[in-house]
Amino acid sequence: MMSIKNYVNNLSDEDLKRIYKKMLMIRKCEEHLGEATKNGAFPGAVHLYIGQEAIAVPLCDQLNDSDWISSTHRGHGHFIAKGGDVKKMMAEIYGKSTGICGGKGGSMHVADFKKGIIGANGVVAGGMGLAVGAALASKMDGNGAVSIIFFGDGAANQGVLMEAMNICSLWNLPMIFMCENNQYSEFTHTSEVTSGKIIDRAEPFGIPKYEVDGNNAVDVWQAAYQAVQRGRNDEGPSFIEAHTYRQRGHVEFEYTFLSRTYRDQNEVELWKTNEKDPILRLESYFIEHNKYSGDDIEKIQKEVQDEVDDAVKFAIESPEPDISSAMVHMIER
């Protein structure tokens, strides 16, 4: 695994600090969700992105509101990374009227089209077609906007990925396939359900591929930079496979219904260490290179935590949706 310092060149310390703060925002939101779900603070299940923050943030840091992202059931991180409002996301997960979707979508459907967030998606690979359609629209608009599909190693086994790669390559669409290989398809290790290497699937379609350490924000930023520039310059699609690790379960509370464990706890702990965890790695870098002191980091942590606490307070204090809202937004008759 390449250490971060070897990579920092066209990425400024300010860029990296901004990325770090956003990663921290995702982490702290989700740590809250992981705790709060134990007390039944909100309805519905949550699939946490903890440990994968260095994928969504460095990529989305390079995007504008006119760029599109479509993501997964593990979608809070992508939503925040692309500039989604944390309060409105939290309120949505709490099922409140002030939620970004008025409490009608919940955790798996946080979306904000005005910010180019087509949304999380409850169907594995379900966002693929949406992202391709947005890429087609961007291509036809000729505005240099790009479209990103975030998907996991599980979704890489859905046939629709092949359809998407074929059409994106054929039509030279400004699409980025961002595969977050977190090693688990729900409760099964990817190696047990996946043949070959996922990254190699881009090759027969002639799509340039970038394989990166997904827990290294700089590594991801560099690959994303190549892919985004290709899209902006009408050079067609790119495929990135970012290797990472799902520190939490497929879904919180999973051991209340699973009959046995499916991975070694030592394996999980290994990925939480300073060497592996994407946030701790950035912090180590900042300290080693005198970019931040321990106090600075503590201060930032507190700022972010305060913002999360505000968002949670906002969600808790927000009113329930009016029941009449259940009956609108299907088709207009």
Binding site: A137, S138, E163
Partner: peptide, 13 residues
Amino acid sequence: NIMTGMAVGAAAA
């Protein structure tokens, strides 16, 4: 599969 989804994405855009 991709055709039906693409329509939704292009319409949203």
